[in-house]
Design a protein around this nucleic acid. Sequence first.
DNA 1: AGCACGCCGACT
DNA 2: GTCGGCGTGCTC
Length: 801
Amino acid sequence: MRIAKVIVDVPANSINQTFDYLIPEKFLDILKVGMRVTVPFGPRKIMGFVVGKAEESTFKSLREIEQVLDVTPVLTEELLHLGEWVAKDTVSLYITALQAMLPQVLKAQYKKELLRNTDASLSQELEHLFAGRDVIAYEEFEGASVSYYQLQKAVQDGDLVVKYLVHSKITKKYVTMVQPAREGYLLEEALQDLSKNAMKQRELLGYFIENPQPIEKKLLLKKFQTTSSTIRTLIDKSLIETTQVEVYRDPHQQQFHKTTALPLTEEQEQAITPIKQNIANDEHDVFLVHGVTGSGKTELYLQAIQDVIMKGQEAIVLVPEIALTPQMVNRFKGRFGSKVAVMHSALSAGEKYDEWRRIHQKEVQVVVGARSAIFAPFENLGIIIIDEEHEATYKQEDQPRYHARDVAIQRGKTHHCPVVLGSATPTLESFARAQKGVYKLATLRKRTNDKEMPPVEIVDMRAELHAGNRSMFSRTLMDKMENCLSKGEQIVLLLNRRGYSTFVMCRDCGHVKECPHCDIALTYHKNFNHLKCHYCSYEEPMPTNCPECNSDLIRYFGTGTQRVEEALTKLLPEAGIIRMDVDTTRRKGSHETLLRKFANKEASILLGTQMIAKGLDFENVTLVGVLTADSMLHLPDFRSSEKTFQLLTQVSGRAGRHELTGEVIVQTYTPDHYSIELASEYDFEGFYKKEMATRKTFQYPPFFFLALITVSHTNKVTAVQTTNHIVQQLLQHVSNNTVVLGPSPSPVPRIKDRYRYQCMIKYKNEPQLRDMISSITEQFKEATQKGDLLITVDMQPHHLM
DNA sequence: AGCACGCCGACT
DNA sequence: GTCGGCGTGCTC
């Protein structure tokens, strides 16, 4: 096998294919499929993945692989195929799919250098630039005022060479170990010869005579209260030596309480049995575990994984980013100890790489992680679990736009292992499949502590307004909060802010400050007294007068967590408040610190956005308040009802999880909306029926599949025309019951001065659709290449923005 | 995507 | 002769 098939690191449509390279003699034995290599590509040198080998090539002259970057393949054959599948399924490039499977640090970085290739003198300007050096970075040339023409000539004459470098960002962490460099008896001899004053040296030598094994330098210094200079002297005498040993950064260095399997309830037992059978028989089924919050889904996962580990297989557990709290991680580490790797975005790039390597080198059998952990390089998967399967974070919002659930099922099929989806509020798609028998449904109706879900009271904020209460807290909520505080119990307050930001409006003329580059209202940021655009980061100071009518009655509207906090401090001055939002949790670890404070009862109220709705478990919380339940109900999104229902159900589960009984207050301006009403009754099936009916009439999932093509251009007319062109072409080829809509303006019609129009496709069965879309977008490749036209394709979009 | 190459027009 | 600015086409 002298020829390697390589997917090169060039994300372009015309390069979306394998390129053949000759494998040089010296690499014949070591080069394996799945390794990264560097190859010459045109004039430059780039990184690529070997995806296959062959004996022959249709190409007459092949260039050689230049370098092999890995010792063992970073991608298994299974992952290579999976990447191909992902690329096809999401209409994206193979290379993009492969990159998505690996930690960021394995991505190549490119650099150019200029090498002097002659002793004869160069032109005056070039000599000045090189200033006596033989090599300079290409950027230096670009920054200098030397013409490109000169460079070109020097290169042509062979006086200069442009060198293309590929290097990876790999950062390994090392510790210095100290160990004896001589046999024990030689050390003893040396000890005799040492001067009497050399106390520290004597101590150290004495130690190494007793303990010849390597010891960490830091530890050694501490143990003998000495400094590096002592070690230095001993090294100079060739008595001891140091080595660099690679270590993994451990992001979770605490101790974990070992836990063992808990007895299961009858319901749990019934749910887990078919999953265990699947595991035992190497069968693949998709299970939907529909269990109310607190019904012990996690214990199910743990026990199923236990079976998998006993079988010598591996497990992937996906958890939404936001729920990847220490509480959650502790449960897995507590049960499986060091067999667990954790992957989430709060880890540094180096830490992510270390966790990935622990999987890659088979040091762990379980990975608990966010979306991308679905690509964990396990070769012997025994189970894949997706907790809170309805969460939107499982859908990647940039290329490749894959859904972790789809990838999981794909992997489950190839590995003949079960895929378990768990949720208290499954997506309509999954629940519908379970109803049809495509997925196996298991329902957990009871909470393990046998407690009822806390009662939910809906408060009509319109009535509050009519009664003269203009504050953001209803009288009921105020009463309950005071009552709760007087008993020394704790409160969780949710401010549902999505689609409800703090915009600036003039009270005189109604003018709303919008971003000059995007069609969206600017958001007010109090700490800087600035207005900011969430789409393009445009900023301007808060105006004192209205730019339209010059009135000074220009104010900001909407409720941010900061404002709620201020109001709350005034009303309940004695209550400590912890605010959790993007602003207060930006710093690494601040999330945990705030939660720990709340757990230690350093504050009585936890106020926050979406992020506090999930997974938190505090025994002293008896009241949950939702300040604005309907804020996202009116977004132009077919999932808005479903999302509202999910959020309300999730947050209600935060109250009264233990001894104390809890209650929930939901404030809303649309108290009779079915998603709010049914959420307050914990009636998932009722909601399912109702929502399915609307989805059916409006031809949305799960009745239809969706595809969204967004076209953007600086020229509005071009954007509309191109979209229209796409629509027309699709209409010619799709089947009768497929609906093609558009061109219609995107919900945010302009971002960064680019107009955005979209085409939506609703289809039931359209096997050729992906190919159709590819060939249509291919027609616009000239315009797309020039960069003024942008076409993005989202198969199964999660929202329509 | 990047890069070379080639053609053109401009400036000195 | 020296330079920059595009449009075009290729990369195993």
